[in-house]
Amino acid sequence: MTNECKKGRNIKDSTSDMVNLTKNVDQTDDLKYNRRAFLKTAVGASMALGLSTVPFSVRAMMGIAEDEGERLEVARMDELPEGNSMTFNYPTESDAAILVHTVNGELVAYNSACTHLMCPVFYEKESDILLCPCHKGYFDVSNGQPVAGPPQRELPLIELEVENGIIYATGRKYRHG
């Protein structure tokens, strides 16, 4: 009885299905995909998730020093009758914003990129609401909070000042209300 005989008995000579089931066992897979490998992957996933937050905090620490409260002339009051809106850029040229003179006579301004997927929002005079047409997201015009649709966060609020009939943007608030 040599080892070769045993191999031959189990693999080649037998016609039994039960014996031939051993052909399904792949030793390489057994060594690769097992309980230990699963736990190692879980640890890797946990560490990857935890460390993936680091770039955000590095950017945040750089962002804390940024000052974006610059005063900018936006429009004249007589150019913007009640129920109308206009677009401008604040605080930088790449930050689109919308200035609304609501039907109630209120002056409000927000960055117009929808907080869902950055589509521009528009003012709907009839229903006095801000609408993102891409996925039907609605924002309350008086405070910029989402009221319907996919957006979860409010629109960044641009603080305004009116002086001698001229509207100025003076700062921006991301979390408000």
């Binding site: 560490m47 937050t53 945040a60 907080t115 966060r153 991301y174």
Partner: peptide, 28 residues
């Protein structure tokens, strides 16, 4: 962290990120 970052709540970002790093080290 992502939510706080998008909301420009930078102090919160640092706190949440710190907790994430600590949890990663605990896992290790």
């Amino acid at each position: 962290t992502v939510e706080a970052y998008l909301g420009r709540e930078f102090e919160q970002v640092v706190v949440y990120s710190g907790i994430g790093v600590v949890l990663a080290f605990i896992a290790l």
